[in-house]
């Protein structure tokens, strides 16, 4: 549904996005993850046709935003980081305005539907300026939904909201994602991605450093262990355990073990690893890293983690199938 190919964007000498490629299938909910300034917003703005890329393409359903801007934009709903509101309009007038410029046929019906959808029916007559931040975020969502787009692009939809509002928006997003709608949302709140998305694309310093299903990304490392007598012999013994696909020596006797893709019983694997490591003075054996660990590992330092053999710079094989 969405296909980003070798996208590159420079602002003068600043290289905001470097050769980003990823793909989102129809009906999928994908989280765009990365620290501030990683290039998430730039990528989304290019996707929605707000700005042009320096090179590369962004395709929606096989069509380039630049070749057919009107056709493509009619199918995308975009909620920027700061909702693009006109503060002194009423909610209803604003959503109707959005419906009109998005070339909806029945403006009033579409506006009422979108307002109802985001739960703003009671405040439709109120001036946007006087609404709380959470409500304003909903008005922004109504604007993105009003033309019933196939693709929703949401830039940090819960930023700056209090926890209760955040949960509400998250619920709303889950409802919106149900069905055939394809959703890309960016965030740096990891819990949000885990709650809503099925897959994440991690961007760091303008590059894609990982693109995986959350479950795979979070549990790529099957175990973390520390032994008192590290060495080549120890490494070989642990790597030889069936189900271990890779072993990373992190120094100081610390090892990170990656499980092969077909291993389902991580507990059994850890038991086997423990038996092998016990001969080398096993000190600690931790369970798999969470999404947070994976995220921190991927976004620390400059550029892709060399320990991962440079692989994550391009989308991982699992997602290209």
């Amino acid at each position: 549904m969405i296909r980003v190919e070798q996208l590159d964007k420079r602002y003068g000498s600043f290289h905001a996005v470097r050769q980003i490629s990823f793909e989102v299938r129809k009906g999928e909910v994908v989280g765009l993850l990365g620290p501030n300034g990683a290039g998430k917003t730039t990528t989304m703005r290019i996707l929605c046709g707000c700005i042009g890329a320096t090179s590369g393409r962004a395709l929606i359903d096989g069509k380039d935003v630049l070749e057919d801007p009107r056709g493509v934009k009619r199918r995308i709903g975009y909620l920027p980081e700061v909702p693009p509101l006109y503060p002194n309009m009423t909610v209803r007038d604003y959503v109707r305005f959005a419906a009109t410029i998005k070339e909806v046929d029945d403006v009033n019906a579409a506006a009422d539907r979108a307002i109802g959808r985001v739960g703003l029916s009671d405040v439709g007559h109120r001036v946007i300026e006087h609404l709380s931040k959470g409500f304003r975020q909903r008005v922004g969502l109504a604007q993105a939904l009003v033309h019933d787009p196939d693709v929703l692009v949401l830039d940090e939809p819960t930023s700056g909201l209090d926890p209760a509002q955040r949960v509400e928006i998250r619920e709303l997003l889950r409802e919106l994602a149900a069905g055939d709608r394809t959703v890309i949302l960016s965030t740096h709140v990891l819990g949000e991605v885990e709650a809503v998305a099925e897959r994440v694309v991690v961007i760091h310093q303008g590059r894609v450093v990982a693109s995986d299903r959350i479950a795979d990304l979070a549990h790529a490392g099957a175990a973390r262990l520390r032994i008192s007598r590290p060495g080549a012999e120890a490494s070989a013994a642990i790597a030889a355990v069936s189900g271990v696909s890779a072993l990373h020596d992190e120094g100081g006797g610390l090892y990170r073990v990656e499980a092969a893709a077909d291993v389902s019983d991580k507990e059994a694997l850890r038991a086997a690893i423990a038996r092998a490591a016990v001969d080398f003075g096993l000190l600690e054996l931790g369970a798999a890293e969470g999404l947070e660990d994976a995220y921190l590992r991927l976004t620390s330092g400059s550029g892709p983690d060399p320990r991962d053999g440079g692989r994550p710079a391009s989308p991982s094989p699992q997602t290209e199938s």
Binding site: R45, C48, G49, C50, I51, P69, R70, G71, K73, R74, I76, Y78, P80, V82, P83, P84, L85, Y86, P87, A98, I101, K102, E103, Q143
Partner: peptide, 14 residues
């Protein structure tokens, strides 16, 4: 300034 330009830019308008 109020970022509403993005509504116009992301709409099917030239």
């Amino acid at each position: 300034r109020q970022r509403s330009m993005e509504l116009l830019l992301s709409s099917p308008l030239n």
